[in-house]
Design a protein around this nucleic acid. Structure first.
Lengths: 246, 246
DNA sequence: CCTCTCGATGAATCCATCT
DNA sequence: AAGATGGATTCATCGAGAG
């Protein structure tokens, strides 16, 4: 029997990563909690992600969606850089030479995330903006309608058996309705474009798996996947998405 | 006779800015030399901007455009941060309370530019990606097809008399053919969207004016403009664009 | 089946009020 | 007085339901 194409490990990434074998994955693709949002530094540290990122009318609506909260979104910026640097350094150990690393960030944490990527030992190779057409306007200012994917590599990136050319920007709206299972869920099309940086048949690691969209995308594109997720709730949600698909 | 709606001062920004009166402009919008490009730090420091940013076939074509070189593109990253911090700090002095500052950057210098913006005393407010549809694909990787505009403000941004809502994502190709007068010239539509952050009738300052597209956009949108340009060549090019329009 | 209208929403930000 | 809190604001997009 071949090894399962996907696997979810429930636990803290900084604890689980050291247990994985060195040089065993072909790409690291993850969406860490941004530790941003909120109005004051106190909000960022003390409020839950649900309160920070979901609008009051959604939370209080009669048919409010029952989305779980997520963990690890209460660090100040210095701790965020330190935590993410450690996570990415551990991920580098697990990555093969030539592997790519993709990390999501919002505009506030972009500089800190690029510091962490390089502090973790990855070579910085670029930024892929993700444009979200649904976003609030800002009075007398520029709408904040993008998030950013930072691209790094472990040495020179691996050449694919058949050369591919990937887009330099992505567009997509967050899933709505019953397909929405996470507060900050990424669109499947966006993740499918990103996992293609991993050579076909390769193995993708996501240390902050959430509801597992990276894994769904990886399998859809013919890659295999390991996810690490800290909350029991989302680890179960992710398992459910694969079991349904299988 | 009313004061001229535009003015170009030939000189080094760090020398000229201290001669301008404090709190006299409503927006600072500029595209500094990125000091980026090239694969090695040696390439970045020793090649000319023309060699780094214009492809060999364009430079050597029979009808090669007679683009001037530009100055100040040979700093290493640490010096770039220091230089830009000083330039932006001097610009802050010249800016009124509530003024906005917009600075172009490529992906390599984005973190350094956000550091310089904040070191210069501006409050960081966001990033507006500019998508350039014409760009080179990358084998086995993500195309780099965006540049970035960093947005800062001097305290809380001024409220416009009539509230405006500006886009968080810009699209436009660099001018080609005879309308192209500068190596890194920005599209007029992109600059017109950006100058609207300055309240109508207000005054825009560009300390690295180049061929003066910011000024052309400012006048088109009903703002006035002061540009500072270090090279005699581009100061003259810019003057020519206004004289033609007048 | 396709088009149209209606309504809900967003990793947000602003502002007056309160502690 | 600085920091925390609750409620209001905005529009492009998209899903649902009607015609």
């Amino acid at each position: 029997m071949p090894p399962a194409p996907w696997r979810i490990i429930r636990g803290d990434a900084l604890t689980v990563l050291p247990t994985l074998p060195a040089a065993s994955v072909d790409a690291v693709i993850t969406d860490p909690p941004y530790n941003s949002g909120g109005r004051t530094s106190s909000d960022r540290r003390n409020q839950s992600a649900l309160t920070k990122y979901v609008s009051p009318q959604s939370r209080h609506a009669p048919d409010a969606h029952a989305l779980g909260d997520f963990a690890g979104d209460n660090r100040d910026q210095r701790s965020y850089t330190a935590w993410l640097s450690m996570l990415l350094a551990e991920s580098l150990r697990v990555a093969r030479i030539g592997a790519s690393c993709l990390v999501f960030s919002d505009w506030r944490q972009l500089a800190a995330t690029s510091d962490a990527l390089q502090a973790g030992g990855w070579t910085w190779r670029g930024i892929i903006p993700w444009h979200k057409p649904i976003s609030r306007p800002i009075a007398n200012g520029f709408r904040q309608e993008c998030e950013y994917v930072l691209w790094g590599s472990n040495g020179d990136p691996t050449k694919h058996p058949e050369t591919i050319y990937l887009p330099g920007w992505l567009e997509g709206s967050q899933p709505r309705g019953k397909s929405r299972v996470h507060i900050t869920q990424k669109p499947l099309d966006v993740m499918r474009a990103l996992v293609r940086i991993c050579p076909p048949g390769g193995h993708v690691l996501d240390p902050c798996a959430g509801s597992g969209t990276t894994g769904v995308a990886a399998l859809a594109e013919g890659r295999t996947w390991t996810g690490i997720e800290i909350t029991e709730h989302y680890a179960n949600v992710a398992r459910g998405r694969f079991d349904l698909g299988a």
